[in-house]
Nucleic acid binder design. Structure first.
Lengths: 106, 106
DNA sequence: ACAATAGTTCGATGATTAGCTAATCATTGA
DNA sequence: TCAATGATTAGCTAATCATCGAACTATTGT
């Protein structure tokens, strides 16, 4: 979930998701829609993929990216619900899987 | 909207919002809930406030922060809807393929 | 095998960010 | 007015991030 929100923090990446909304697109096709270099876009794809927001499928020499809507919806809705929901579950704690901010539960 | 997503990118700030879910809290009360210094928390409050996610009200020498749920919901739901919504053609850029600023819409 | 195409990985760089301590501001109470 | 309290601002460091060009991998077509 942290990765999802981190991925959504960048406008370029949010826009990529919107472009993938209607149909899958190749890396190059996506890259052509933004005024940044291909390596930069590739890095954005990585972030989105590690967050689980997009999936890649190689076809010949192109790579087709598709949106994984369910992951996005679950993260966003899940967070909203954690705010609206039962007024109890705020004190959870996870153990040291991050270097700093290990107290983090959201 | 960009500011909202940027604010949500940090786990500490998301946790602050969750703490504010039930009732407003003072800056000190919130700061005491995290293992970081008060100035650091103050900076987080600034980010949240500039995003419109929280509102501050001074009472004597304490400052009470309260969650502005509607802003949060509108941003998150709004984004989800922009992905699920009417599949208007987002990128008809076949000819020319110029770097327009179409990506500034998210 | 070679050249072209699609895409990523590598290495460096400038900008932003989260974090700290120390200093400051603002309010209250003696 | 002075001291204490709650909170922010100032100044700094270290880490992270978005970006680039160059090099690399993989695939296709000749």
């Amino acid at each position: 979930m942290n990765q999802v929100f981190r991925a959504l923090a960048d406008p370029t990446r949010r826009r990529v998701l919107q472009l993938l909304r209607e149909r899958p697109r190749t890396a190059g096709e996506l890259a052509a829609a933004f005024p940044v270099s291909k390596p930069t876009m590739s890095a954005h794809f990585s972030v989105l993929q590690e967050a689980g927001l997009i999936a890649a499928e190689r076809n010949g020499r192109t790579i087709l990216y598709r949106l994984r809507m369910s992951v996005l919806e679950e993260a966003l809705m899940g967070f909203v619900h954690s705010l609206e929901g039962p007024k109890r579950a705020v004190a959870r704690r996870r153990r040291g899987d991050v270097k700093r901010r290990a107290w983090e539960g959201a």
